[in-house]
């Protein structure tokens, strides 16, 4: 029983971490319309920052702050390339930047032991509780941002640059700030990821992870924090829950494993077909000017 509770705690922790990554992406995509196809890079860089800082003997809490700062800085650098680039164009550009960073971590053995990755040997007390509380805090912050004047402007930017420009808003600055906040949250998630697994390697930053985070946001309902969290839980249940399903069916494991993914793919597609705006869609507000 104790072990089952342990598994529950693990699942809650990992879901919270990915909820943070998904909410960070939602701030960029759902609120500001920035199609970031390189989202996983925030997690990877955050995790590596924690690993490198921890191995240098820095206090665990300071490691977390360093991770957030490094990832926020990366967000700023990435935002400098946005300019007036169209959605998918910047999407593939951000993916390219993420992959370039991953390839540096993969190939430079002096930096972080290359493909072998780094072990993270520190822990913090009440780790899972810290993650859950941080997630709630992130939800709160993002809710405040959403309702703030800043949130209104970035949602305006989502619908196109012209109107905010006409209102005299510095669109690029808003995008930069959005990416910095998104990066910091992603870095926080990455730092927790490294602490959870005690390990980080370039394989944790493969593009497939970005697309899974994207699926969490879109399946849940972009532009709605509750929806994004629901989407994260849904995808997490798809991936973990389907492992239990495989015990019920008695066929060869080599065939069952791909069939599990067929099911996952069909369910993602099914949600999109029958709930195109996600499980819990964004509530549109009407502002009277």
């Amino acid at each position: 029983m104790e072990q089952l509770i342990g598994f529950g705690i693990y699942l809650v922790t990992v879901t919270c971490i990915f909820a943070m990554l998904a909410m960070s992406l939602d701030l960029q995509v759902g609120a500001c319309g920035l199609m970031n196809f390189g989202q996983v890079v925030f997690m990877m860089v955050g995790a590596y920052a924690t690993a490198i800082a921890a191995n240098a003997g820095i206090n665990p809490y300071a490691c977390i702050v360093i991770s957030m700062a490094v990832a926020a800085l990366l967000g700023v650098v990435m935002s400098l390339t946005v300019k007036n680039m169209g959605g998918t164009y910047w999407g593939i550009l951000s993916l390219s930047m993420a992959e370039l960073i991953r390839l540096v971590f993969l190939n430079e053995r002096w930096l972080a032991d290359g493909a072998n990755g780094l072990s993270v040997l520190i822990t913090i007390p009440y780790f899972s509780l810290t993650v859950v509380v941080s997630t709630l805090f992130v939800i709160l912050i993002l809710r405040v941002i959403w309702l703030s004047p800043f949130g209104r402007v970035i949602r305006m930017i989502r619908e196109g640059d012209r109107l905010p420009l006409a209102l005299g808003k510095n669109v690029l600055l808003f995008k930069l700030e959005t990416m910095a906040i998104g990066g910091a949250i992603g870095g926080l998630g990455g730092s927790f990821y490294a602490l959870l697994n005690s390990y980080i390697s370039p394989d944790d930053g493969l593009p497939i992870e970005t697309f899974i985070i994207w699926a969490m946001v879109v399946v849940g309902g972009r532009g709605n924090l509750l929806g994004v969290v629901a989407g994260t839980v849904f995808i997490q249940i798809l991936f973990v829950g389907s492992r239990f399903l495989t015990h019920i069916v008695d066929i060869d494991a080599g065939v069952l494993a791909p069939l599990r993914f067929v099911l996952i793919g069909l369910l993602i597609m099914g949600v999109m077909m029958f709930r195109p705006q996600g499980l819990i869609p964004e509530r549109k507000r009407v502002y009277r000017i």
Binding site: D203, D204, E209, A253
Partner: peptide, 9 residues
Amino acid sequence: VEDNEGRPK
């Protein structure tokens, strides 16, 4: 049997 999907996570 559990599939690691080629992903550390």
